[in-house]
Amino acid sequence: MKVQNEAKPFDTINVTPMLDLAYVLLVIFIVMTTASVQGLKINLPKPSNKPSMEKKEVRVVKILQDGSLTLNGAGLSMAELESRLTAARARDPEMSMAIAGDPQVNYAKVVDIIDMAGRLNISNVGLVTAKIGV
């Protein structure tokens, strides 16, 4: 009779306890990392004593259906528009300008006005997309 109780060598390793240990260490790492971060330190800008909302006049250039130009409702030519915008920019270097083009007008006229604003160093230029009452 042969005894069947002989010890056989194991050919596999049980990795379950090692995985349990790895998961516990991962949880401890996550908890300790998030507990050490209290918040972000941000240097916020300080308010100045100047008035916060200065009202500045916006020059509205309208290009009508026939290609004529108006500045705040007054009709003028391209040369007159450039001279008036130059004078306004000399008075207020941070002036704003809005360009309202009629839907039927050739877009090249709008581009000419934008180019003129670039030559005059007017940086606050907007395109009006809704009807305005000027």
Rank of each mutant, 00 (worst) to 15 (best):
P45T: 04
E80S: 10
T33F: 12
R89Y: 08
V3P: 02
D112H: 07
I122M: 03
A79C: 05
L120F: 01
K62E: 13
E57K: 15
V111W: 10
K109R: 09
A108F: 11
V15A: 13
V24I: 13
L40A: 15
V128T: 01
G126P: 00
A79P: 02
A35C: 07
E82N: 04
V61H: 00
R59W: 08
P17D: 09
M95I: 13
S96Y: 04
A108K: 09
G126W: 01
A87V: 01
S83C: 04
M1D: 07
T70V: 03
A90N: 03
K46V: 12
E54Q: 15
G67F: 08
V37Y: 15
A90S: 05
K55Q: 13
N124C: 06
V134R: 04
I63H: 00
A79D: 15
L85N: 03
P51W: 07
S48W: 06
D102I: 07
L21W: 13
P45N: 07
D66R: 07
M53C: 08
D11N: 14
T129A: 10
K50S: 15
A90W: 01
I30T: 09
A108M: 07
A35G: 09
P51F: 08
G133V: 06
I42E: 06
N43I: 08
M18L: 14
V27N: 05
N43M: 04
K56S: 14
I30L: 15
A35M: 12
M97S: 05
L85I: 03
G118W: 03
K55F: 14
A108Q: 11
D102W: 08
N5G: 06
L71G: 01
D115T: 06
V60P: 02
V24F: 11
K2E: 08
L40K: 15
N106V: 11
K131F: 01
V37R: 13
D92G: 03
R119N: 06
L81R: 01
A74S: 04
N72H: 03
V134F: 13
G118T: 05
I122L: 01
M32A: 15
V110Q: 12
N14L: 11
L71F: 02
M95Y: 06
L26R: 05
V27E: 05
N106Q: 12
G101H: 05
A117I: 00
I63K: 00
Q4M: 10
I42W: 06
F29Y: 15
E80N: 09
Q65C: 06
K41V: 05
A130Y: 11
A7M: 07
P17N: 10
V128L: 01
T34D: 08
